[in-house]
Design a binder for these strands. Structure first.
Lengths: 143, 143
DNA sequence: CTGAAATAAGACAAATTTGTCCTAATATAA
DNA sequence: TTATATTAGGACAAATTTGTCTTATTTCAG
């Protein structure tokens, strides 16, 4: 459903949100990749993309790291779009560039409601909610 | 959402169902790949997989080709599972092998209903329904 | 029986995604 | 100012997915 990069991105963002609930300190790549069990250099690349998409703020140098932008609650759909683009939520499931409501592909209408439902859930679910759940339920970032 | 192979597989199956509504003749790789605008040799590979999964019957030799198994209505979820496996519909969205109802990942519950909805739609939508739509609406297999 | 037309299958090639490594740039403490 | 710890970025490498090519096997018409 999601690319590996996107899976990591969701874990990254959730972990940072979780950490920032506990303290205002920035979080660095090393801490993130250890916490979510992801390859460090690859994680750094994904972090760069998240910064470019303004879903994270980075600061370089000593005691640098990554943090959430101020007053900015981020949804899963924003993360997915930043990493995998609009394809999952907007693109044709059969890959047709020309598929639309008026010119639907053979399965368009059959999956429309399910995709809409998914889209709404991904928009509704934001880091605030997830981080709260993490605190309450002690959910995990790695296996 | 789906792999390229899976996109092709859905088009392949739908096209064969559509053709068989018109005549009982088998359909060959060449006709299929032209109709759905897919690379012929790659299409042949996917057809082999569909045969192995018993979603198609093949016959070799002259006047050979592919046809749907008798009295067997096939759903999108069967096609997807045959090609991409159970990952999309059953696997954890974050890729955790240990994610389950009792031991959910950080987003498990938030996406549960949407994934369930999608699963049901993919189970409900079968070749009979799609082929009917193709006849009525003159939907397309390629751009 | 033979030739032609079809699927089956394995090896290969190209493209994309995933992941690594090295160096540059930057910021801070001492 | 300098050493150190951090992100940024580019080039590279490995793995996976996508796609191709060639040969074997099968079937049927003639």
């Amino acid at each position: 459903m999601f690319s590996k990069r996107c899976e990591y991105a969701i874990k990254i963002m959730t972990f940072i949100a979780h950490q920032q609930k506990k303290s205002d300190k920035k979080v660095d790549v090393d801490a993130i990749s250890k916490a979510i069990d992801s390859p460090k250099a690859f994680t750094a690349k994904i972090l760069q993309d998240l910064v470019k998409s303004d879903l994270l703020v980075s600061s370089r140098g000593r005691f640098g790291g990554f943090s959430l932008p101020d007053q900015f609650n981020i949804s899963l759909s924003q993360i997915i779009e930043a990493i995998d683009g609009k394809k999952l939520l907007e693109g044709c499931v059969l890959g047709f560039g020309t598929c639309s409501e008026k010119n639907p592909c053979i399965v368009h209408h059959h999956l429309k409601s399910a995709r809409q439902h998914l889209k709404i859930k991904l928009q509704e679910t934001n880091l605030e909610i997830i981080a709260k759940r993490v605190n309450e339920k002690n959910a995990y970032f790695k296996e």
